[in-house]
Structure formats: C-alpha cells, structure tokens
Nucleic acid binder design. Sequence first.
DNA 1: AAAACTTTACAGGAAATCCCCTATTTTCAT
DNA 2: ATGAAAATAGGGGATTTCCTGTAAAGTTTT
Lengths: 215, 215
Amino acid sequence: MEKIQVFLADDHKILRESLVILLSQKDNIQVIGEAGDGQEAYRKIAELKPDVAVLDISIPRLNGLDLAARLRSEMPEVRTVILTMHKTEEYVAKALCSGVQGYVLKDNALEELIECIEKVYNGKMFLSQDVTGFVVDGFISSFRDGGIQTEAISTREREILQLLAEGKTNRDISEELNLSIKTVETHRANIMRKLGLRNLADLVLYAVRNHIIQP
Amino acid sequence: MEKIQVFLADDHKILRESLVILLSQKDNIQVIGEAGDGQEAYRKIAELKPDVAVLDISIPRLNGLDLAARLRSEMPEVRTVILTMHKTEEYVAKALCSGVQGYVLKDNALEELIECIEKVYNGKMFLSQDVTGFVVDGFISSFRDGGIQTEAISTREREILQLLAEGKTNRDISEELNLSIKTVETHRANIMRKLGLRNLADLVLYAVRNHIIQP
DNA sequence: AAAACTTTACAGGAAATCCCCTATTTTCAT
DNA sequence: ATGAAAATAGGGGATTTCCTGTAAAGTTTT
C-alpha cells in the first residue's frame, strides 16, 4: 500500500517533533520532511514533492498563506493543509483564496488533522467544524449583498484613524496636522460611520486588527 | 520508582494530545491531567496536585501567568513550567515574577521540555537557552534602577478594564454590574492612574497587550 | 484589634466627545 | 467640463469623560 507522503512546516519545534512521531505511527501516513520556516519549506517541498503539505500560517520568512499560494501555482499536485491557531473569518478567507484544500485548528483533536490529511489526499476538501460556519456565512452573504461592502476610507481618514488609535485627542491631531478641530471631528465621525464603529475602543481594536497600529 | 506527575494546560488540543502521548512514553513521567483553559486547569490542579504543571500563557478564561501566580500562593508544592511561543523579555519577566520554575519555548526541541520538567521536579530552575539572555540583562539592570514597580490592579478593576476595552461606556458597565456610574468612574480613574494610562486608546492597547481581550 | 487595602459612592467643574446639520474648496474620473 | 467624492470648516447643544476631592462599609493582613 502506498503511504500518504506528508510534509510539515511549523516554527514550533515541539509541535513539529510531536506530530512527526505521532503521524508516523499511522500506517497510511509517512512524514517525509519538515521545516521551521517558509523559505526552507518551499525548497524542501520542491525537492521532495509530498502528497500533502501541512503548513502553519505564522512561520518566519515566508508565511504559510503566501507559501500555499506559491505552491498552488507552481506545484498544484502538492495539496496544502493549513494547521493554525487562527480561527477568524479573515484567516480562513485568505487561506481559501490561497487555494488550500484543508484548514484545521490547533485546538482541534489530532484525529481531525489525520482525517483532514486523508480527505485531502483523496481529492476532497476538509475544514474544521469550527471554521465551516464562516464559510457558510460568507457564501450566504455573498448572495445577499455581493460580498461584504466595507466602504473604503480615504488616505486622510486612515491617517487620522491611526492617530486616534495611538491615543491622540482631536485637539492633538488638529495641531499635528494643522487642521481645525472641527475638521478632525468630521473625519472622525465619517470614519466611525464608514466602518460601523460605535466608540473609540472599537476604533482602536479595528486599527489593531487591520494592522494600522501594532499592539 | 516514582514517576513525575505532570499536568498540561494548553488551548491547542493537537499539541496537548501529542504531548500527553509522547511524555507518557518517557518512563519517569506520567501525565495525570490536562485542560484547555485556565479555570478548568485551576480546578483540576487543585484536585490532582501534580508535581509539575506545564502551562501555556495564552489560554482562555485565566491566563497562564495569572494561574501560575495563583498556584504559587495557594499550592506552592505544585511547580509550574511555562510552555509558550512568546520569547520577549516582557513575558519572561512576568513569568518569573509569577514564580514559575521553568520557561520553555514551543520552538525548542521536545527534549528541552523533558529536561525542564525533570530539573524543575528536582527543585531546580530551568530556562530555555533563548530566554536566559533576557534574565541576565534584567538582573544587571535591576542593579541600575531597582527594578520595575507595576502597581497591581484589583480584581474589580481588572473586570472593569476588560469591559472598557470591549467598548462599553461607563453607563453600560454600571448597568451590567449594578453599580453607580460614579463608582465605575472611580474605578476607571484608578485603573488609569495605577497603570499609567492617559486615555481610552492606551487602555485598549494595554488590554490587548496583556491578553485581557483578544484583538 | 489595628492598619491597610478594596469596593462602593458622590460632588462639581473642566475638558472632550457626540450628534445633527450646513457649506466651501479641491481633486479626480468620465 | 461636469458631477462625485474628499477635505476642509463651522454652530450649537447634549452627553460623556476627566480630574480632584471625600468617605463609608467590608475584607485582608499584620
């Protein structure tokens, strides 16, 4: 019987080692390589041509999503599975856009990962129960209103958004940018309206989530 | 021979399961329990009294550092080891202040964790090679300026901090907790003063940085 | 039991934000 | 060039937060 040849990319060596040992105990799975960063993973995958590449998202040098996108275009015969701690809609959406065949959360059971590898090897897709909700919701809402319409904020608004998230007051900002307070107030209100934010705390969290500021 | 009784707390079930299996293969180690969040971990540790508790920092409901501090004061006979992805000085410092005996990074080898558990069980401390640098630096600088004094906030204050960071207004909070607005205002002011925060944006960032809320 | 801390609560005034509205100038694409 | 969107600015009032105090009741520590 042919074993499923699996490659692992994860920067946590403890997890990687553990998975190598445990997956190898399954008699239909064989781990043929591993890597601790994206670049190394790319090289080794190109050389080893595994059936399934299991990738963490947050790995150094080349993240798992970009790596997956690259694998899809250059080696479509290598199927990719994301194994990650991230359970937000944003990451799931990005992963699916990158053309991965599987998405498993690290807080799922090991058995889920094994099932995922087997399904994906057999040409199916596999998503963790926890993330399928997002996908269904996204599918439904794409019918309802043609996708999420995040009204784009302008450059100036983004600039002010950042200053607000950094803790500046309207007055601070008006002085820093040589504007009237009223102008800043208007921008602020427009930002809030466009992004559907209710208060400053929401705004700060929005900025963190969208990497406008670093926490 | 007495086996070292180990408890595991980590929200990533895959890692937890893997470690249970692999640590149990060592003939001097026995995993007697595990948990996916801090509250559950606390209850089970109180009941099982393991020799060593291996804790992740970012676990739901009660984070690993606060849990470690609680264990130190209430069950000092349970030794604690932090197993985490965080390799910044800040986390290492907090962990040591919480009285942990070991600090191992997830991207270290599994063998390091095993060595750590053994050392800690024998009354020694163990730090990953990667983090000892911080500790030495910190030791040196503590001579320079007498160490950092972060005034601790109370339980109630912490609760209100979280609600504020979630975007609740003083009024919302006063209703949710059945307090007068004035009380909430006082708590808020005390939190700000104690933590050296200047405005709500600072407060939200503080909460994100300290994992009181998730971005 | 005394001391120290926590939680609760309130007052009053200054500062800032929020809300709803209007309005001019600039910029940019069709 | 013409209209749409963005950037600018403002009025005025309601609401909220911020700051600085005081203080009582309950809890923990010493």
